[in-house]
Simulated scan of single mutants.
Amino acid sequence: MAYQDARLIVSGTATGSAITGQTLTGTDTSVLSTYSVDLGIARDIGEGEDLFMRVTVTTAQTGGTSVEYQCVAADDAALTSNLVVLGSTGAQAVAGLTAGARFIVDPRPLIGSLGKRYIGARAVTVGAVAAGAAYIDFGVDFEDGAKFYASGYTVS
């Protein structure tokens, strides 16, 4: 499991190893993350160690066509003033948004030139998305858990 920092959770909650997602539903709408990360001042965080927005679907999305998870930056904690999109998963078909599905957004290329104080997340729904939730946080590492290799091989 990737390292988690409670101050970098923007959608949902984490208690021990259990995570709960923020409900992300609606008809052709945008749902902002419940929380944002306050950088203290408007700053360039594009330099230094990699930073990823990590999305985990906790409740399968149903209804609608797609959901796009976006990493956003703004001038206010509510993520409503001068909002800009730093990176995105692109539109993800609802059929693939099953519980446990995970996505990574790498926002670094745009952060450096923006100088925003707050970063967070936004889910953009297409169609009438009736159910679904996701846990979203920021971190310097990620684990996809999808690669399995046979043991007993020889390297020459």
Results as ranks from 00 to 15, higher is better:
1 M>N: 04
4 Q>G: 08
10 V>N: 05
10 V>L: 03
11 S>R: 11
11 S>L: 04
12 G>W: 06
13 T>C: 00
13 T>P: 02
13 T>A: 09
13 T>V: 02
15 T>W: 15
16 G>T: 12
18 A>F: 07
18 A>D: 04
22 Q>G: 09
22 Q>E: 15
24 L>V: 00
25 T>A: 00
25 T>F: 02
25 T>V: 14
27 T>C: 11
27 T>Q: 05
28 D>W: 04
30 S>I: 13
33 S>I: 04
34 T>A: 10
35 Y>R: 11
35 Y>T: 15
35 Y>I: 14
36 S>W: 12
37 V>T: 09
37 V>L: 09
38 D>M: 06
40 G>I: 09
40 G>L: 06
42 A>C: 06
42 A>N: 09
44 D>R: 08
46 G>P: 03
47 E>A: 03
47 E>I: 10
48 G>W: 05
49 E>I: 06
49 E>R: 02
51 L>M: 08
52 F>Y: 09
53 M>V: 07
55 V>K: 03
56 T>I: 15
56 T>Q: 15
57 V>H: 13
58 T>L: 03
59 T>I: 11
59 T>Q: 11
59 T>V: 12
60 A>L: 11
61 Q>A: 04
62 T>P: 03
62 T>M: 09
63 G>R: 00
65 T>H: 08
67 V>L: 08
68 E>F: 14
71 C>E: 01
71 C>Q: 05
72 V>H: 14
73 A>N: 08
75 D>W: 07
78 A>M: 07
78 A>K: 02
78 A>C: 01
79 L>P: 01
80 T>I: 01
83 L>Y: 04
84 V>T: 12
85 V>P: 05
86 L>A: 13
86 L>I: 07
93 A>P: 14
94 V>W: 00
96 G>P: 00
97 L>F: 13
98 T>E: 14
98 T>P: 02
98 T>R: 15
100 G>K: 03
101 A>C: 02
101 A>I: 13
101 A>K: 11
103 F>Q: 03
103 F>D: 11
105 V>Q: 06
105 V>A: 05
107 P>H: 06
108 R>E: 12
109 P>C: 12
109 P>D: 04
111 I>W: 14
112 G>S: 01
113 S>Y: 06
114 L>T: 14
114 L>D: 12
115 G>M: 07
117 R>S: 04
117 R>T: 09
119 I>W: 04
121 A>W: 09
123 A>Q: 01
125 T>A: 03
128 A>R: 00
129 V>M: 02
129 V>D: 02
130 A>E: 10
132 G>H: 09
134 A>E: 00
134 A>F: 14
135 Y>N: 09
135 Y>L: 04
138 F>N: 10
139 G>N: 13
139 G>D: 15
141 D>G: 03
141 D>T: 12
141 D>V: 12
142 F>R: 07
145 G>V: 13
147 K>E: 06
147 K>V: 11
147 K>P: 00
148 F>A: 10
150 A>M: 13
151 S>L: 10
152 G>Y: 08
153 Y>K: 07
154 T>F: 12
154 T>P: 01
155 V>E: 15
